[in-house]
Amino acid sequence: MAKYIGKRLLYMILSLWLIVTATFFFMRIAPGNPFTSEKQLPPEIEANLNAHYGLDKPWYAQYGDYLLKVAKWDFGPSFKYKSQSVNDLINEGFPVSFILGLEAILIAVAFGLILGIIAALKHNRWQDYTAMIIAVAGISVPSFIMATFLQYFLAIKLGVFPVARFETFMHTVLPALALASTPMAFIARLTRSSMLEVMSNDYIKTAKAKGLSQGVITVKHAIRNALLPVVTYMGPLTAGILTGSFVIEKIFGIPGLGSHFVTSITNRDYTVIMGVTVFYSIILLASILLVDIAYGIIDPRIKLAGGKKGE
């Protein structure tokens, strides 16, 4: 196991290097630079700025400097937000996005699984149709419309939750719900089809022939086997949700990481683009690793290469 994880970590570093390199060069190929959006600067001042941020050096020197700094977990200063480093932006934004994302994931997984399992057990009955209508709605209604609906009904009309901002737990409920609706619907559909497939398997009949009740069969025999597709989907979902959703954070006025991701690109804020991309990649790679480890735990047939000795 340790050997396997070590090997995977090495691959992760390799992937990160590729991502950093690709982002670095694509970003430079894109026209414009961090200072073009403001009014025409006198050439001397622009030269000064370039020198200050090291943009006057040849590209390979800039690239080398950047790799060294990233290795030391230093993403450099932001070009737009003066006196703030990219590390500061991430350190401020990520905890907010993290809390919001975690709530959304919990909601999505819990309700998604419950809906999916109910739908599968009550296949082609009203419970199934209800769950699937909810799921189709969740997938087809974009999260920003869901967000606006939630704000209008639950916050403005009923006044149960605050409309926006990010202060107390109550503030996190609506954005988490809005963020969770699509993945929840997805998980519900995945769970349903996967459960239906598992419930038609011979070993479920064996379990029934043993005299086990429907509840025990579902919990002990079906769910674990039905979980793999859901776990697969969890990897990218976790990364996406944890680093924040730009739209949801904008609508609810949440100071998370998502907005930096988008605004930094229009600003040509090189260091922020790089920093946020690298950070997102790390989380994505880490959650994929976790998913792979979870596979091995859920299904004993999946042996992690280099884990236990071969059969």
């Binding site: 398997n201 011979d202 070993y203 009949k205 064996t206 379990a207 022939a209 043993k210 002990k220 025999h221 674990r224 086997n225 859920i298 299904d299 004993p300 047939r301």
Partner: peptide, 15 residues
Amino acid sequence: SMIFQDPMTSLNPTM
């Protein structure tokens, strides 16, 4: 009790 035809699929693979 019952014994089924295909022993490859009649046992729960994750138990």
